[in-house]
Simulated scan of single mutants.
Amino acid sequence: MTSFISHTTVDCADAYALSEWWKPVLGYVDLEDDPNEPGHEECLIRDPETGHLVLFIEVPDTKSVKNRIHFDLMPREGTRDEELARLREHGAVEVHDLRDQWGPGTGWVVLADPEGNEFCILRSPAEREAARAAHEAEA
């Protein structure tokens, strides 16, 4: 017997505000029959393509240490650096830049959302494939 992940939960101080912040980052939407509203202590958003769910739930304690689990985001289109620029404009804060640490075009950038939850921006599938093809051509 095994289990599956029903949804990903993010503890937070303001479930509505954080769910609203993450919706355009991920391209997620409210559930049709359960829209999120100000004052809701639990706000659930869904990926319209995959159905993945993220639940934001208010807790009394504040974030005090590094996340033990975090999102690794990969752009659906464009590049890692274009997505990084978009997320900075949206209000994400850069925590650590690990681009090019393992050679040109490698690595990721660690960002934080408005409540300090860290997440990473990786290279897009197209960037990863281009790097793989270039490496094979050199070999």
Rank of each mutant, 00 (worst) to 15 (best):
L18R: 05
A112F: 08
I5S: 05
D81I: 00
Q101D: 10
N117Q: 08
P114M: 02
E115G: 05
H7K: 03
D34F: 08
D11G: 14
A133M: 13
D47Q: 02
P35T: 04
G105R: 02
S19M: 01
K63G: 04
I45Q: 00
A139M: 14
A137D: 14
F119K: 00
T2W: 05
R128E: 14
F4L: 02
R123G: 15
P38R: 01
A126P: 06
S64D: 14
H70K: 00
R68N: 07
E49K: 01
E82N: 09
P114Y: 04
E94M: 12
R86I: 00
A92Q: 04
G78H: 05
T9Y: 03
P60A: 06
H7L: 01
D33Q: 10
E37A: 15
N117K: 00
P35C: 03
R132I: 13
L18C: 08
V93D: 05
S19F: 03
L44P: 00
M74P: 05
D33G: 09
I45Y: 01
T79D: 02
S3T: 10
A130Q: 09
D33Y: 08
E138V: 10
T62I: 07
D34A: 13
P35W: 02
G91K: 04
T2I: 13
G116Y: 06
D81T: 01
P104V: 09
M1G: 15
D113K: 04
T62L: 11
E41P: 03
L44D: 01
L73W: 07
L26Y: 01
C12P: 10
E127T: 09
A137V: 09
V95I: 13
E129N: 14
R68F: 07
R68T: 11
R86Y: 00
E129I: 15
A85K: 06
W102Q: 12
V65N: 04
N36V: 12
P24E: 08
T79V: 08
E41W: 09
P75K: 04
Q101Y: 13
V25N: 02
E77W: 03
E89D: 15
P125C: 04
V110G: 07
G105C: 03
G116E: 05
W21Y: 14
P125Q: 08
H96F: 13
H90V: 09
E138H: 07
A126D: 15
R123M: 12
A92E: 02
H7N: 10
E42Y: 10
T79P: 08
R88C: 06
A17H: 06
I121A: 11
Y28F: 15
L84N: 04
A126R: 09
L55C: 14
T9E: 13
P125T: 10
V59R: 07
L26C: 07
E32F: 00
K63F: 02
W22L: 06
P24A: 12
L122W: 13
G103N: 12
N117Y: 09
